[in-house]
Amino acid sequence: MSLELPHSLLLLRAWLEPRRALLAANARVAFATLEGERFTLDPSHPELVHRDWDAEGADVVVLTNHQTFADLLSGDFDPRRPRSEHLFMWAGDESAWQSLEKATRESKSAFEAQLGHLRR
């Protein structure tokens, strides 16, 4: 099914695709946003980031909003000092989070740095 992904999802997909091999199979992260979006980051899925929603099967579930997600990618979201418009509630397997963190470690991006802060 062809779906229009928000701009930030395309960014995430483009950025993670080259690192797919580094992601563990158990790094499936199901995202829900307050705006109503549902998408899943799934290393074993052909599209890597896709719109099928399987929260039960995901290793980590995240509730966030567009603003926070975009700021996470751009480095404007600091989990230690979230602004009033930020939301990032997550639950699930910590090792899945670590896998994502590890796979992005070499990227030296703001995204990787904030992943670590979110885990703590």
Binding site: V61, P82, H86, L87, M89, W90, A91, G92, L118
Partner: peptide, 12 residues
């Protein structure tokens, strides 16, 4: 708002 919840069930 920026936190880890105790279980997936609580978030769902």
């Amino acid at each position: 708002r920026v936190s880890r919840l105790p279980s997936k069930d609580s978030l769902l």
